[in-house]
Computed example of a mutant assay.
Amino acid sequence: MKNCFTHISSDSEFEEKAFQTFSHQFENNPVYRSFCDLLYIHPSDVKEIQQIPFLPIQFFKSHQILSTTNAVQEVFSSSGTTGSITSKHYVTDLSLYEKSYLAGFKHFYGNIEDYVVLALLPNYLERKGSSLIYMVNDLIQKSKNSDSGFYLHNLDELATKLKTLDNQGKKVLLIGVSFALLDLVEAYSFNLKNTIVMETGGMKGRRKELIRKELHSILKQGFGTREIHSEYGMTELLSQGYSTGNGIFNCPPWMKVLTRDTEDPLTIENNNKTGGINVIDLANYNSCSFIATQDLGKIYDDNSFEIIGRFDNSDIRGCNLMVF
């Protein structure tokens, strides 16, 4: 079951896999089982995916979230300020992550070999515990293009390469953290016609936080592009959502986003209402596929979604159910 999530092609198939995954993780993930037990929820009681318990994401900071006894191959960790507690995602099968992001990229953008991948991110050696860097490093390798690479510390070379490749009509993916993209457009002007500019979020104290609309407006003007794309992923997940513009994201077929009531974390909201973002990620078979994030967002009737903000720590409810 665990290796066939990329073959999902319908809502009914997704639900069947979600129920199978829930049963597996209930039986094999001690932390998740304890959380479900405290809620008095058993797989036999669950008739629809909205009834599956979503584990608060904060538990990745305090517990090993594993649904297998297999050896850990990689530990991905979130970035954080000095002294802060970071999330850790213990990955026992990197092939599931690779399968997910490669199939996800192909689903939204086509063959990676058609692109030159330019990364405005720390390179793999600088930020070895980052799941994003792991993914982008592999996309760079899979592109099989000598121009692909990391360029965070060499904006002059990147600016020249971007203009040259774009003028040559090459398909280019420029992927970067928000503050670095802003640095680039403040130092250089562009008029890109064949380049996808994708931001992955992240000011991390480097700049004043901007709302997405303001950020994208600055970047569109600076790069000369009609849209700014975005990636929605996190340390605790093995799948990503993508936006091709306007901050509206879509998921690959094995990932689904729901919203929960901000006052009652066990109640799933209807579409078009702002709530806490819950994610089902069926690639996360060996960890936990049902995660309540700290993001606030809205789901639309076509299953696309928008991220509106984040909970303050004081607004997080439901985590005090389980402190041990």
Rank of each mutant, 00 (worst) to 15 (best):
278 N>M: 13
195 T>V: 06
149 G>N: 10
185 V>K: 09
229 H>E: 08
166 D>G: 06
136 V>N: 07
203 M>A: 15
71 A>F: 06
235 T>A: 06
255 M>C: 15
205 G>H: 10
168 Q>E: 15
191 N>C: 12
122 P>Y: 03
183 D>Y: 10
159 A>K: 01
117 V>M: 05
142 K>F: 12
299 I>Y: 00
195 T>P: 08
262 T>C: 14
51 Q>F: 10
34 S>N: 11
198 M>G: 09
201 G>K: 09
290 F>M: 03
181 L>G: 04
149 G>K: 07
81 T>C: 02
39 L>N: 15
146 S>G: 07
249 F>G: 01
277 I>P: 08
274 T>I: 15
83 G>K: 04
242 Y>W: 12
122 P>F: 04
4 C>G: 06
279 V>A: 06
52 I>K: 05
115 Y>P: 07
240 Q>S: 15
74 E>F: 11
124 Y>Q: 15
15 E>L: 12
277 I>G: 02
224 G>D: 00
76 F>D: 00
304 S>G: 07
64 Q>K: 14
109 Y>H: 10
183 D>K: 12
177 V>N: 02
111 N>K: 13
262 T>R: 14
208 K>I: 15
313 N>I: 06
250 N>M: 10
164 T>C: 06
316 I>D: 05
30 P>V: 00
273 K>Y: 14
30 P>C: 11
234 M>D: 02
139 L>V: 07
182 L>N: 04
111 N>M: 03
208 K>L: 14
19 F>V: 13
321 L>H: 03
166 D>P: 01
126 E>Y: 06
314 S>C: 07
284 N>G: 13
66 L>E: 09
66 L>S: 08
2 K>Y: 12
159 A>C: 06
90 Y>Q: 02
145 N>E: 14
128 K>C: 11
136 V>W: 10
240 Q>H: 15
